[in-house]
C-alpha cells in the first residue's frame, strides 16, 4: 500500500495536497483497493460552496459505494471530468487522479488531518 509522504490524510481515506489557498482531494490507495473495481464516479458540482464534512462526490464499485467527504470548506474550483468516462483511473493511479480542487475558506480545517505516518497506523488498525 502506498502512502506518499507529501500528502495529508483523513479517516475516510481521502488524501489532501495543499497548494497555497487550494486543497486538492483524492482517494487513497487503501480506499481504491478496498472498493475494488471502480465503475462510476459521480463528480462534484463545479463552483459549489461546500462545508467541511460535506459529501461532495460518490464513488461506486460493483458491490460497494462510498461517499467522498471534503475535510475542508470552500468553493469547488476544479473537477476531474476524466473520471466520468474512465472511473478505473482511480484504481490505476489513485494519487495522480484528484476528485476535486477546493479553494479553502479556512485553512485551519487542515489541522485535524493525519500525517502519512498516522494514516499508515490508522490503516493497519483497520486491518
Amino acid at each position: 500500500m502506498q502512502v506518499p509522504k507529501e500528502l495529508m490524510y483523513t479517516d475516510e481515506h481521502e488524501w489532501i495536497k495543499v497548494d497555497g489557498e487550494r486543497a486538492v482531494i483524492g482517494i487513497t490507495d487503501y480506499a481504491q483497493h478496498n472498493l475494488g473495481d471502480i465503475v462510476f464516479v459521480e463528480v462534484p458540482e463545479l463552483h459549489a460552496q461546500v462545508a467541511s464534512g460535506d459529501a461532495i462526490a460518490v464513488v461506486e464499485s460493483v458491490k460497494a459505494v462510498s461517499s467522498i467527504y471534503t475535510p475542508v470548506g470552500g468553493t469547488i474550483v476544479e473537477i476531474n471530468d476524466a473520471l466520468e468516462e474512465s472511473p478505473e483511473l482511480l484504481n490505476q493511479e489513485p494519487y495522480e487522479q484528484f476528485i476535486a480542487i477546493i479553494e479553502m475558506d479556512d485553512p485551519s480545517d487542515l489541522d485535524d488531518l493525519m500525517t502519512p505516518e498516522e494514516y499508515e497506523k490508522f490503516c493497519q488498525a483497520q486491518g
Binding site: 473495481d37 465503475v39 462510476f40 460493483v62 478505473e88
Partner: peptide, 10 residues
C-alpha cells in the same frame, strides 16, 4: 460462465 459485472456497470 462467470459474467463480467465490472463491464456491465462501467
Amino acid at each position: 460462465r462467470r459474467l463480467d459485472e465490472v463491464k456491465a456497470a462501467r
